[in-house]
Structure formats: structure tokens, C-alpha cells
Design a protein around this nucleic acid. Structure first.
Length: 350
DNA sequence: AATCTGTCCAACCGCCAATAA
DNA sequence: TTTATTGGCGGTTGGACAGAT
């Protein structure tokens, strides 16, 4: 496989590009006899027309005898995801937990497979939280509202079985984001379907942070409340011949951990170059995919196969009412303090 | 069969921190 | 203390490859 440069000499006369078997053998022979010592001095001593950096990289990423080659196992996959949720793009730190795997290999595997997989699951690969793309929604809400106003959108939003049928179409590519948007819009409409919007009236299956933001905003802007309630009423009438209005919970997976992080068909043990990960019956409950929700290492111990940390965080987020109120108050204060986000719902609704 | 398109991954680049002089 | 060198890291590139058209 070729590198980024064609096989040629650079300005200093040193060779770049892919390594030949002869070069590999020279490097292996030298290091086995002498160790690598100074990487800078090694090429001349080993008879290689390469820079020391190139030699080091070739050795550490490819020629080292303890390199474990081949596809990643499911356990390795789970571990990488879990470690990444704590460490971020600290590939070398992650690699220390996977014997025989190099940081480069893990990085490539992440970028080509795992990131895609998490996105397919509606999970933000940076924050490891379910995606809401709340900033992106600002730009797309008009279209979402338009979709909600036509038969497909309204039917989908109000009827879970038809929603799932449409889902197979929607998910033909990386559409988990779109689904999250639908879900947020549905949350909005669900909040609007209650006449008395208070913190205590917010259904448990709606992310309270968003719901409280919305309700507070609507208290201050009753004209928007009226407009959106009319929209919600219209949608309900459109769907009046359909089964009763469903809650978001009908769409929501029992738990995030059931998403078979390692059990899905994909690359790795299953072979196959580019298999996609099906099974998008649902997405986890929405939480803001913002940096403040990222675990800051140390608050949860790392253990193989533990894919429940996010779920635990969600449960913490949703369960205790006193904690919830405190969290909401704090979040709301932050929200109001922030000039940019202070106009969040205003921009969405307007 | 030829061409196009998207994906993979080895290898490079630039930056930074640690160490040596 | 300052400067130079070295090793290590994360981000990015681009040729090879496979599947689609």
C-alpha cells in the first residue's frame, strides 16, 4: 500500500514512500543485532537511505515482532470505544491498553470503522452522547417543520410503526442525525401538546434540559407558543385516523447498552470490507451532545466490556428529581448566561 | 471491458515536550 | 537559562484497491 508520497528521494536524498522488503530486512537485522539506539544514527549504521524518523515509524508500526496483526476482535472494539470515551483521541494512551496494537492502527480503525459505526447509531463519536445536533437544527428546523407538515412527516412523527417503516428509508445512509432531529421535533410537539408547561409536567422521556429551555422560552414568548400549539393541533388532526399519539418512549431503545456495540456485523472478525451496521430500530433518549457532558476521566473506572457508562450518566441525568432540578437550574442559568445559546429556541421557532 | 467512486491504511507532516549540550 | 536535538503524538494524505456503473 502506497503512502502519501510516491517512492522517491526527497531534497536531502533520503528515500521516502513505501518500504521495500529489502529495506525491511535491513532494519530488522540491524535492530535485532544492536537495538535501535539513536534513531537518527540508525539509518547510516543499518545501511538504509532513510531518515531516522521513517525507520522508527516503520519499526514501531509494522516490523516490531510483538505487533498483533489482523482484524480487531469484538472485545478490542468495545475497549477502544470505551477508552475513547474517556481519553478522546489519545491514541497512544489507548494503545497501551491493547497489547500488540499500534496507535496508528487504532487511529485508522477508529476513523474508518468505529466513528462510522457510532454515527450510524446516532451517537456522537466525539462526546459519546446521543446526537441532537442542536446547533445544526437551527439551520434545518424550517425543513423539519415543513416535513412535519406534510403527510409523511406528520404520519411518521405521530405513529411509531409508520415511523419505523419510514426509518428504513431514512436510514439508507448515515441518517441517524436526521432521526435525532425528528426526535427533538417530536419532543417539541409533545411539550406543546400539554397546555400547562411546567418543569413537573415534562414527560420523563423528553430530555429535561431541552424541555425546560423550551418551556421557559415559550413563557416569555407566548405568541410562539400559540403558533406551535396550532401546528401541533393540526398534526394531531391530520393523524386522527391513526393510532393514538405515542410518546417518544415508543421509539427509544430499552437501553443504550443494548445497541450491541460489539455484536453488530461489521469489519473485524467478520471480515468483509465495508459492511454496515443495521438494526436502527431506535435511538437512545436525547441528551445534549455537548462537551460538558463528556466524562472527564477518573469518575468512572475503566473495565473491559463496560459499555454502560453512558447509560449510567443518562440515568443520573433523568432519575433523581432533586438532582434533576439542580441540574436544570444550573443548565438553565448557563443557558441564559450564554448570549449565543440564549436565542436558541428563539431562532428555532422563528 | 473500461471508467468512476468511495474506502482503506501505510506513511508522511508538523507540532510539542523532554532531554541534552 | 537558553538553544538544539530527539522522540513521540495526532492529523492528514494519496495510491491501491474493490465495488458500482
Amino acid at each position: 500500500m502506497m503512502g502519501r508520497s510516491s517512492s522517491s528521494d526527497d531534497q536531502s536524498g533520503l528515500k521516502k514512500g513505501p518500504w521495500t522488503p529489502e529495506e525491511d530486512q535491513k532494519l530488522i537485522d540491524y535492530i535485532e543485532r544492536n537495538g535501535h539506539g539513536s534513531w537518527r544514527a540508525l539509518p547510516a549504521l543499518a545501511g538504509l537511505n532513510r531518515c531516522g524518523k521513517s525507520c522508527r515509524l516503520r519499526w514501531t508500526n509494522y516490523l516490531r515482532p510483538d505487533i498483533k496483526r489482523g482484524n480487531f476482535t469484538e472485545d478490542e472494539e468495545k475497549l477502544i470505544i470505551h477508552l475513547h470515551s474517556h481519553l478522546g483521541n489519545k491514541w497512544s494512551a489507548i494503545a497501551t491498553h491493547l497489547p500488540g496494537r499500534t496507535d496508528n492502527e487504532i487511529k485508522n480503525f477508529w476513523n474508518t470503522h468505529l466513528k462510522k459505526k457510532l454515527l450510524q447509531m446516532g451517537i456522537d463519536p466525539v462526546t459519546h452522547q446521543p446526537r441532537t445536533d442542536h446547533l445544526d437544527i437551527l439551520a434545518h428546523l424550517p425543513q423539519l417543520l415543513a416535513m412535519a407538515a406534510n403527510n409523511l412527516g406528520a404520519t411518521s412523527l405521530l405513529n411509531p410503526s409508520l415511523f419505523d417503516m419510514n426509518l428504513s428509508t431514512l436510514m439508507s445512509q448515515s441518517e441517524a442525525t436526521q432521526m435525532a432531529k425528528f426526535q427533538l421535533l417530536q419532543n417539541i410537539l409533545q411539550v406543546l401538546s400539554t397546555n400547562n408547561i411546567t418543569t413537573s409536567s415534562i414527560p420523563q422521556n423528553i430530555d429535561p434540559f431541552y424541555a425546560v429551555q423550551l418551556s421557559e422560552y415559550l413563557k416569555l414568548n407566548p405568541q410562539h407558543l400559540q403558533n406551535l400549539q396550532e401546528l401541533a393541533m393540526n398534526e394531531a388532526q391530520t393523524a386522527s385516523s391513526l393510532p393514538p399519539f405515542s410518546t417518544t418512549a415508543d421509539f427509544v431503545s430499552p437501553s443504550y447498552s443494548n445497541h450491541e456495540l460489539g455484536g453488530s456485523k461489521g469489519v473485524g472478525e467478520h471480515g468483509g470490507k465495508e459492511e454496515y451496521y443495521g438494526g436502527f430500530e431506535s435511538v437512545p433518549p436525547l441528551v445534549p451532545a455537548s462537551p460538558e457532558n463528556v466524562s472527564h476521566g477518573g469518575d468512572t473506572h475503566i473495565e473491559l466490556g463496560n459499555s454502560t457508562s453512558i447509560l449510567m450518566k443518562q440515568n443520573e441525568h433523568l432519575s433523581s428529581s432533586s438532582t434533576l432540578t439542580t441540574t436544570i437550574d444550573a443548565n438553565w442559568q448557563d443557558f441564559m448566561d450564554d448570549e449565543a445559546s440564549g436565542c436558541y429556541w428563539k431562532e428555532i421557532i422563528e
